[in-house]
Design a protein around this nucleic acid. Structure first.
Lengths: 130, 130
DNA sequence: AATTTTATCGCAACAATGTTGCAATTGATA
DNA sequence: TATCAATTGCAACATTGTTGCGATAAAATT
């Protein structure tokens, strides 16, 4: 595999992820980057980060795509099978690292990956009694 | 609420859903429709069908959106909390009506809807030992 | 059956998101 | 510092989805 380089743009993107507690979309990253680099470059950086397992990609119910930094802290083998929560009010996506669903599959399917997204109200919006 | 009409295009779309065992994307429907109606009309028909609870919308891991006919047979109250299976080989999406995940949430989140998608190999592709 | 009402349609135009090719740039390494 | 290849910017394009509006056609009413 090819070596990935640490470029100005990539570092800037990583800093943004570091600061953010929630998952970010391409356009949100673009806004925060303030023309550090081209739109296309952000796509390519995100692709690389996903490939290098530094960031994971989350597709939402509403069709939007977001990215979040991976939390490798506890696991040797890195699998993204945790749940995500999507707030219908503030539209923030948070990783629920500890929520893992259990389920029973019909045999003759081979499951390799799961995506479990819950939506509703996040603690913040719930408290603002909306 | 407004009354929905039975138009030629809507009937054609429903027939396609009837024939299909898997979920269909807008473009797949468009191909099968053979210019029965405009691209935009298909979007509007799908919106109406989702609204009328005749079809449900499925957002996939890869960002694609598909639609499938609802199976109301057993339930009075109709909830789409069943799982979907996405085959990484043939890219078909199937509803797993009977697979429902169980999970434990942190308190202070209010869950209203869940989306549970599994991916891997479907029975067909598994048998063709790929 | 003709008329009326309004849901639906087609078309054009637009917006958002993502991709590709290619020449120029720049990070890493020797 | 020179070299090599990963990365970038730009332009162009593809796909997906949305909106406004005048025309059309279901369905209800007369």
């Amino acid at each position: 595999m090819k070596a990935t380089r640490n470029t100005t743009a990539k570092t800037a993107v990583l800093e943004i992820f570091e600061k953010s507690k929630t998952a970010l979309s391409h356009s949100e990253i673009q806004k925060q980057l303030n023309d550090v680099c081209d739109r296309v470059t952000i796509y390519r950086i995100l692709d690389r980060l996903v490939n290098d397992d530094i960031v994971h990609k989350i597709s939402n119910l509403d069709g939007t795509v977001k990215y979040a930094k991976c939390n490798h802290s506890n696991q040797r083998v890195h699998i993204h099978n945790h749940a995500h929560f999507s707030c219908e009010n503030c539209h923030e996506i948070t990783c629920l690292e500890n929520v893992k669903p259990s389920y029973i599959m019909p045999h003759n399917y081979k499951v390799k990956e799961i995506n479990f997204t819950l939506s509703g109200l996040c603690p913040n919006c719930l408290n603002s009694n909306i």
